[in-house]
Amino acid sequence: MSGIALSRLAQERKAWRKDHPFGFVAVPTKNPDGTMNLMNWECAIPGKKGTPWEGGLFKLRMLFKDDYPSSPPKCKFEPPLFHPNVYPSGTVCLSILEEDKDWRPAITIKQILLGIQELLNEPNIQDPAQAEAYTIYCQNRVEYEKRVRAQAKKFAPS
């Protein structure tokens, strides 16, 4: 494992614990031996107030490669969400998460999670990743928002 990646992720964890947006979660997972795995984080993004996503808490896994922060983490909703920019596998399609697009090593975990929260309610229809959600979003916004509200209710924190 890269010392650069681990040191950056340790800084990220410290900064997150000191200050993070209300309702968001970002925690490194534990290895079988109980030690912390900084390369694999369990996160959760709350649906934004005043949107059909409100009330939901959407679980996301963030996986970092050894060359982080040169390369972005892979962000994957578990379980996958109904959304035009979420692949059926759950992987998020967002330009700041793509090395050859808008990724920059200075982007923080907090910025990534806030960017994904923004994307939930403002899909990028130029870059669809899920045919069904994309089609319904474009053709029947009322039905799309109904499905999103049902999903938010399903993923409401207990």
Rank of each mutant, 00 (worst) to 15 (best):
G3A: 00
A5F: 09
S7C: 10
L9T: 03
A10C: 00
A10H: 05
A10T: 11
R13S: 02
K14M: 05
W16D: 02
H20D: 05
A26W: 09
V27G: 08
V27H: 02
P28D: 06
P28W: 00
N31P: 07
D33H: 00
G34A: 07
G34H: 14
G34M: 10
T35I: 01
M36A: 03
N37K: 14
N37C: 15
N37Q: 14
M39V: 12
E42P: 03
A44Y: 15
A44Q: 01
I45T: 10
P46D: 05
K48W: 01
G50Y: 14
G50R: 13
W53H: 01
E54S: 12
L57V: 08
K59E: 11
R61C: 11
M62Q: 04
L63F: 13
D66E: 12
D66G: 10
D66A: 11
D67K: 07
Y68C: 04
P73C: 10
K74P: 10
K76Y: 15
F77G: 00
P79A: 15
P80I: 07
L81W: 01
L81S: 03
L81I: 13
L81D: 01
F82A: 03
P84L: 15
V86G: 01
V86A: 08
Y87N: 02
P88N: 08
P88W: 06
S89A: 06
S89T: 12
V92F: 04
I96L: 06
E99F: 09
K101M: 08
K101L: 13
D102L: 04
R104Y: 01
P105T: 07
A106Q: 05
A106L: 01
I107C: 14
T108A: 15
T108P: 11
Q111W: 14
Q111L: 13
Q111T: 13
Q117K: 08
L119C: 06
L120K: 03
L120V: 06
E122H: 10
N124Q: 00
D127T: 15
D127G: 13
P128G: 13
Q130F: 07
A131P: 09
E132V: 08
Y134P: 05
Y137Q: 06
C138D: 09
Q139R: 13
Q139N: 11
N140L: 02
R141F: 11
V142R: 14
V142S: 14
R147C: 11
R147M: 12
A150I: 14
A150F: 10
A150K: 11
A152M: 05
A156S: 10
P157T: 11
